[in-house]
Simulated assay, not measured.
Amino acid sequence: MLTFLTGCADAVGFLSLGGAFSSVMTGNMVLLGLSAGRGEADLALTSGCAIVSFIAGVLAGARLAGSAQPGDPVWPGRVTRALVLELLVFVVFLVVWELNPANRSEHVDLALLMLSAAALGVQSSAIQRFGVPGLSSTYLTGTLTSLIAGVAARTPWRGLRPKAQVLAALMSGAAVGALVAVHLSAWSPALLIVPLVFVIAVSSRMAEEPGVEVSPTAR
């Protein structure tokens, strides 16, 4: 669900908020380099602000979520707290969006992109609390690489399925986000808030379930 949200946010950001991404910082850094080479100040500002906002979100999320600890439950409560912070950022996103329903200025679009990038930064660092190497809901090039390497090595499908599901969720979110951004723009904030509310509601029931001790290598 969180990866589906990421796909939606990236589609909305790219199509409706200035042509940069909310979570794909590698892409934004490439756009920043392209803007420097082509002398496009607007693209440089958009991509640069997205990167800075994402970093700010990562710092805030890491502070709130903390790091993996021995004896952590299946879903540490501090992860949920970080996701609540992400939700609050997206609520601000919703308010700004609704106050500027049509013909938004470039400054408003930039502010919305920065809010979205900050929220995804919080989410990125929150997922790190699980202490599982390679687990992410935002940066997934490594997941794709691991999946293809596993296929080449003839790894059983049971081990590859989670990676395939996460990648499918990202692409599905991007597809849905693009459709809504183009045809039902007013509903774009709902794509970012509804999945997050669902995850917070479900995770609150998981927070007390005992987990397994996290190994030093996983941390």
Rank of each mutant, 00 (worst) to 15 (best):
V95T: 05
L110N: 00
S125V: 07
A175G: 15
M114H: 01
T145K: 15
K163I: 07
P133E: 07
L64T: 13
V30F: 04
A62R: 13
F54E: 03
E86G: 08
M171V: 14
F198Q: 08
A174K: 05
T143C: 10
T143W: 05
Y139L: 13
A169D: 02
G66Q: 05
S215R: 10
L64G: 02
T145G: 11
L144N: 08
N28V: 10
A36Q: 10
W157D: 09
Q123R: 08
A118E: 09
V132I: 13
S67A: 12
S125L: 05
L115I: 06
A65T: 07
L94R: 03
S116G: 11
P216N: 07
D10F: 02
L160R: 08
T46I: 09
S23E: 03
I193R: 01
M1W: 12
T46A: 06
T155I: 14
V58N: 08
A174M: 12
I193V: 11
R38T: 14
A65E: 08
R81I: 10
G48A: 09
S188M: 12
S215H: 12
G150D: 09
S172C: 15
D42P: 01
V122Y: 01
V199G: 03
A11I: 01
F90W: 08
R158C: 04
L196I: 06
A218P: 01
L32H: 04
A11F: 02
V12L: 06
W157L: 15
A201H: 12
F54Y: 14
S116T: 07
E106P: 09
G39P: 05
A126R: 02
E86Q: 13
V199W: 00
A186G: 13
C49A: 14
R219F: 05
A65F: 09
V182F: 11
M114T: 09
Y139P: 00
S35Q: 06
R154A: 15
L144I: 07
M206Y: 11
V30A: 04
L144G: 10
A111G: 14
A102V: 12
F4D: 04
I148L: 15
A175T: 14
E98D: 04
F93Y: 15
G7S: 10
T155C: 14
P195E: 00
N103Q: 12
S16C: 07
Q128M: 06
S188H: 03
P76M: 03
L83D: 01
P76H: 06
N100Y: 01
L32N: 00
G39K: 06
G134H: 09
G18P: 01
W187M: 13
I51A: 04
G211A: 08
L112G: 06
A50P: 00
G37E: 07
A82D: 08
P216Y: 06
D10P: 00
S16A: 12
L160H: 08
E208H: 15
S47Y: 00
T141V: 13
S47I: 07
L179D: 09
A168Y: 08
E98L: 15
G7D: 00
T6G: 04
G134N: 05
A9V: 03
S105W: 12
P76Y: 04
F54N: 06
L17E: 02
F130R: 09
R81N: 14
L45G: 02
T26D: 08
L170C: 03
T143S: 07
L192R: 02
E106K: 10
Q69D: 07
V79F: 10
L191I: 06
A126Y: 01
R154V: 11
F54W: 06
P189M: 03
R78H: 04
T3P: 01
R63M: 11
A82V: 05
E40S: 12
L31I: 03
L135M: 11
